[in-house]
């Protein structure tokens, strides 16, 4: 059973704010969905095998890529050719 406190904690882990009035609705839907997922408890056997996966290596060849102007074209907040982000500390 997931509580409203759990949902707040998950929101924090996922970096998604939850409004006070949304908490009840999210908690109810999480519980319904997770209860449905409990059906997976019956599944036996190991996870996905490697049968169709194999590593493909290649030389690291430098090719043309997007220009700095192109990459910065979708933000208003730039500084000296870099993205400007909120402070971390």
């Amino acid at each position: 059973m997931i509580t409203e406190r759990d949902v707040e904690h998950i929101g924090m882990l996922a970096d998604i704010a939850i409004l006070r009035e949304e908490l009840e609705g999210f908690t109810a839907s999480f519980n319904r969905i997770l209860e449905y997922f409990d059906i997976l408890d019956q599944v036996t056997g190991a996870g996905e095998g490697e049968e169709r996966s194999f590593n493909v290596f290649r030389e690291d060849e430098v090719e043309p890529s997007l220009s700095r102007d192109d990459v910065l074209s979708n933000t208003l907040e730039t500084e000296d050719g870099f993205f400007r982000a909120p402070r971390v500390m």
Binding site: D15, P86, R87, V88
Partner: peptide, 27 residues
């Protein structure tokens, strides 16, 4: 997780601390 309002889309408030700005933008 890439949608943080830094590189594209409506911007985050760069004056706020990272997690607060990020969480609000995503909400």
């Amino acid at each position: 997780a890439r949608y943080d309002g830094v590189r594209y889309g409506p911007p985050s408030d760069v004056r706020k601390p990272w997690h607060e700005a990020f969480q609000e933008r995503r909400r």
